[in-house]
Design a protein around this nucleic acid. Sequence first.
DNA 1: AAATAGTAGTTAAGCGTTTAACTATTATAC
DNA 2: GTATAATAGTTAAACGCTTAACTACTATTT
Lengths: 339, 339
Amino acid sequence: MPTLAEVAEKAGVSIATVSKVLSNTPYFTEETRRKVMSAVEELGYLPNLAARALSSGKTHLIGVVFPYVYEGIFTDPLVQYILEGIEAECNARGYNILLSTPRLSSDGPDENYRQLLRSNYLEGIVALDNVPLGSVLSPSLRKNTPAVAIGYGDHPHYVRSDDLQGSTTLMEHVISLGHRRIGILTVDESLHYSIQMRHVGLDQVAEEAGLNYAHLPKYDRGDFSIASGMQGSAALLEHYDDLTALVCINDRMALGAIQQVQKMGLKVPDDITIVGYDDILSAQLFSPALTTIDQRAPELGHQAAQMLFALLNNENPDSVVIPTQLRVRESSAPPKVSR
Amino acid sequence: MPTLAEVAEKAGVSIATVSKVLSNTPYFTEETRRKVMSAVEELGYLPNLAARALSSGKTHLIGVVFPYVYEGIFTDPLVQYILEGIEAECNARGYNILLSTPRLSSDGPDENYRQLLRSNYLEGIVALDNVPLGSVLSPSLRKNTPAVAIGYGDHPHYVRSDDLQGSTTLMEHVISLGHRRIGILTVDESLHYSIQMRHVGLDQVAEEAGLNYAHLPKYDRGDFSIASGMQGSAALLEHYDDLTALVCINDRMALGAIQQVQKMGLKVPDDITIVGYDDILSAQLFSPALTTIDQRAPELGHQAAQMLFALLNNENPDSVVIPTQLRVRESSAPPKVSR
DNA sequence: AAATAGTAGTTAAGCGTTTAACTATTATAC
DNA sequence: GTATAATAGTTAAACGCTTAACTACTATTT
């Protein structure tokens, strides 16, 4: 690999001059530029990024952090949308993405990750931070590195989906259809802040409608998976066969539930309404298509990255809460009068 | 950030000794180790990765390259599975992933990417390389960086899914069910090597069964999307209403086709068999569940990463072709005798 | 004509490691 | 008791870049 020194020699100038030309720092003639450039060209010179990083302190590297918790990170369909959003912003600015997927336990993230984070190797960080178990972005970890959290972690700068508004809208939809005997399919809510918020929303709307949320039939041992949606709906309907609607905390569980109730001979939405949350690809494709909440995940990624670059630019961007969108499809309808 | 020098001073030794202790290079006493370690501890020393990279030439960074071609990279459902596989291997070895998503045009990948690749900043590369349009891993680009291609790019080291075996198995399944009037839904085959291979497989089996593949009704202006599957199936059935089976080049188009033919009043699989390729999540969920080919994408990622680390270790791993698995589900059945 | 400001380029220090080459001490062999 | 080998640690060069401080001109101002 040719170095600055070789370019300088070939061009007949000093390495400082070459550096100036390449970084467009003022004060050189067109003549010099030409000489330098043609030397660069001939030698196929490329800057050594490690050297540049060491010297300037700028790595042009953004850490994108998706903690690995209860399941593989990439099995979460939202992750890819978020990544897409972040990627677009970084690409536009010539920044590279270092993808970090720390194992998160109750002791916090793994040692590799801690070191990476504290090493100042990353100019900035965008992290999914939604897990009460532990933050990948706690103040002691992130130190001086600008960071944006996607989620409910307690951070000065964050982007969130409006889970409260989303769950409220979803529950209002179900209740306004006339349902009152409503079952809830969810996961251990200590797992996820956004799940907790969704419960708050469901609760509020239920109470306003005169329903006691705490007493609604619930299955809370799901794990986000399709299988647990099947299991949960079976368990609920076994004890409460008069339910006219199932509100599920995510789409995969909702799709599992639909399959299960169909297997049990019920029609969706005629016999029972089932709604989800997330609007994954399968939600639109499924038959019946799933009524659900679109979190607009790519937007989460875009906004988070934009905020991060604002921070790097010494601006002070406001945190953002992104409104969700109710997608009414085929899986929800008024309850049958007969039941 | 404390440096080696500060640690050395605090421990009362030279920086070379500190470096030796930390890298476990022989020849120091237990006593020294203790002094160094406690200085490290007290100061919270962490190595500067840029400096280390400059000095040692090792960045501990693996480039994972997903070219951005006709559509956003992350809209391809396989990508996340592959990423999952690569991530697991890198994580186990303490390597970090630099995620690169070059824009690929007929001039090759964009300039940012070229520079990154040739800068020796990455110790190794795993790249999706399946596009005749241009390689992200051509010899001139990758130079001395060890690289593993996932796909059909012409490289010394690659991992491929066995598209020939997959498509053969798929077509054999359809033909063995008794179908002879078969339509093909595909994309411009100049877009993708693996698509080309799938055609070869379909062709072979068709010919063996006495069908002229070239004359089978085809829609080849798809773009992998659900919408184009709907469009393509509509177009085909308009001209050939006697088709008893549609073989689709990927799952999303197949799912689109199912929706479309259902909309047209046909039953799947009673009136028409529809099969896909990929086994995306929705394939299992859809009703009817889609008969398709499972490429075992996570395995592609695992194997590719393992090969790369073998290369870094100066071994000479063999390239790998990963067999696929036919998933027979509900969307395929023998043709109705009446039609 | 001297002082000042602007332009063009150079010198050299510094970024924080790694590591080859060296010195000094101690243990082992004969 | 010396030669040799092994051990423990140090010195200093090197990695390739950025950038502050400097010199040397040329153009402008007064």
